[in-house]
C-alpha cells in the first residue's frame, strides 16, 4: 500500500475513535478531511517525512511487555530529578557524550531516543544521519559512564529488532 493512502487510513481511524460514530455521513466527512490533511501534510513537509512509521503486531506485543520496565524507569527518573532539584546545593555535573548504538529500523531509533529521554539523568540531543550515533546530555558523571554499556539499547533491540 502506498504511503499517503496509509496516512489517510490512519487519520480516518483516529477520526472514528474521536467521533465515536460510524454513521455514513460522519465517516464520509472524516474521509474528506483525512484526504485533505494527508495532501496538505505531504506538500508541507514532503512525502518522505509524511509517511507513518510501520510496526508489526509482534513489535507491539513486545513493546507492551517492555512497558512495565519503562514505567519503572520513568518513576525512577522523576525521583532522581526531584532529589536533584529540591537539594539546596543543586548537585549537577552535566556533560554531553556520544554513544554508538547501531539500529536497523526508524521505529527503533524513535523508541530508543524517547526511552533515553525518559530514563534517569539522560536526554537525547541529536542522532546523526546514519542513525547510529546518539548524542546524549547527562546530568551526572556516573550516568554518563553507565551509558556505553547500553542497557536500554539491548532492551530496544529486543523489542523492535526482534533478536
Amino acid at each position: 500500500m502506498n504511503r499517503p493512502y496509509l496516512l489517510v487510513v490512519m487519520l480516518l481511524v483516529f477520526w472514528v475513535v474521536l467521533t465515536e460514530s460510524l454513521s455514513p455521513a460522519e465517516v464520509a466527512l472524516g474521509l474528506v478531511t483525512a484526504i485533505v490533511i494527508a495532501l496538505g501534510v505531504s506538500r508541507l513537509v514532503g512525502e518522505e517525512e509524511a509517511r507513518p512509521l510501520l510496526v508489526t503486531p509482534r513489535q507491539v506485543a513486545r513493546f507492551l511487555l517492555y512497558m512495565p520496565y519503562l514505567v519503572k524507569e520513568i518513576v525512577a527518573a522523576n525521583i532522581h530529578v526531584a532529589e536533584t532539584v529540591l537539594d539546596p546545593r543543586l548537585p549537577i555535573d552535566p556533560i554531553i557524550i556520544e554513544c554508538h548504538y547501531p539500529l536497523a529500523h526508524d521505529v527503533s531509533v524513535v523508541g530508543l531516543a524517547n526511552s533515553i529521554t525518559l530514563t534517569p539523568g539522560t536526554l537525547t540531543v541529536d542522532v546523526d544521519k546514519n542513525k547510529d550515533t546518539f548524542r546524549i546530555h547527562c546530568l551526572g558523571r556516573e550516568v554518563a559512564e553507565a551509558m556505553p554499556e547500553g542497557e536500554l539499547y539491548h532492551h530496544i533491540r529486543h523489542v523492535f529488532e526482534e533478536d
Partner: peptide, 9 residues
C-alpha cells in the same frame, strides 16, 4: 524556515 527538509547532518 518552516518549509524545508531537516538538515541531515
Amino acid at each position: 524556515r518552516l518549509k524545508e527538509e531537516w538538515k541531515r547532518c
